[in-house]
Amino acid sequence: MTTPAIETPCVQICNVDRESRLCIGCLRSIDEIAAWTRMSPEERRRVMDDLPGRSLPQR
Rank of each mutant, 00 (worst) to 15 (best):
Glu19Pro: 01
Val47Lys: 01
Cys26Pro: 01
Ile13Leu: 07
Pro57Gly: 11
Arg45Met: 14
Val47Met: 11
Ser29Thr: 13
Cys26Gly: 06
Leu27Asn: 06
Asp31Phe: 14
Asp50Ile: 03
Met39Trp: 00
Gly53His: 02
Ala5Thr: 11
Asp49Arg: 15
Gln12Lys: 09
Thr8Gln: 05
Gly53Phe: 02
Ala35Gln: 10
Ser20Phe: 12
Gln12Arg: 09
Ala35Lys: 12
Glu32Asn: 06
Pro52Ala: 09
Glu7Phe: 07
Glu32Leu: 06
Glu19Met: 05
Val16Asn: 00
Arg18Gln: 09
Ser40Arg: 02
Ala35Ile: 07
Pro57Ile: 07
Cys23His: 02
Ile13Met: 06
Thr3Gln: 02
Cys26Phe: 07
Pro57Phe: 06
Met1Lys: 10
Arg38Tyr: 05
Pro57Met: 08
Trp36Ile: 02
Pro57Asp: 03
Thr37Asp: 07
Ser55Phe: 03
Asn15Trp: 12
Arg21Tyr: 10
Met1Gly: 13
Leu51Gln: 05
Thr2Cys: 07
Pro9Cys: 14
Arg54Tyr: 04
Pro9Met: 14
Leu22Met: 12
Asp49Asn: 14
Ile30Leu: 08
Pro4Ser: 15
Leu51Thr: 08
Pro57Trp: 01
Asp50Pro: 03
Asn15Gly: 13
Glu19Gly: 04
Gly25Arg: 03
Glu19Arg: 09
Val16Asp: 00
Arg18Lys: 15
Val11Leu: 12
Ile13Glu: 09
Ile13Ala: 02
Arg44Trp: 04
Arg28Val: 08
Arg46Leu: 12
Val47Trp: 02
Cys23Ile: 04
Pro4Glu: 15
Thr2Gly: 01
Ile30Tyr: 01
Met1His: 11
Arg21Asp: 09
Glu43Val: 10
Arg28Cys: 08
Gln58Trp: 07
Ser55Thr: 07
Ile33Pro: 04
Val16Met: 07
Leu27Val: 14
Pro52Ile: 11
Leu56Phe: 14
Leu22Ser: 04
Met48Gly: 06
Pro4Gly: 13
Asp49Val: 12
Leu51Val: 13
Gln58Asn: 04
Glu7Val: 15
Glu43Gly: 06
Cys26Asp: 07
Ser55Trp: 00
Glu7Ala: 14
Ser29Arg: 02
Thr3Tyr: 04
Glu32Gln: 08
Arg46Lys: 11
Cys23Ser: 00
Ser20His: 12
Ile6Arg: 06
Cys23Thr: 02
Glu32Cys: 08
Leu56Val: 15
Arg18Asn: 08
Ile6Tyr: 05
Trp36Leu: 02
Leu22Val: 10
Arg59Thr: 06
Thr2Asn: 04
Ser40Gly: 03
Leu56Asn: 11
Glu42Met: 13
Gln58Phe: 10
Cys26Lys: 00
Asp31Tyr: 11
Thr2Trp: 05
Ala5Phe: 13
Trp36Glu: 00
Arg45Val: 10
Asp17Glu: 14
Gly25Cys: 12
Pro52Asn: 01
Val16Phe: 14
Gln12Tyr: 03
Cys14His: 06
Ala34Thr: 04
Val11Cys: 10
Glu19Ser: 09
Val47Asn: 05
Arg28Trp: 08
Cys26Glu: 02
Ile24Gln: 14
Arg59Phe: 03
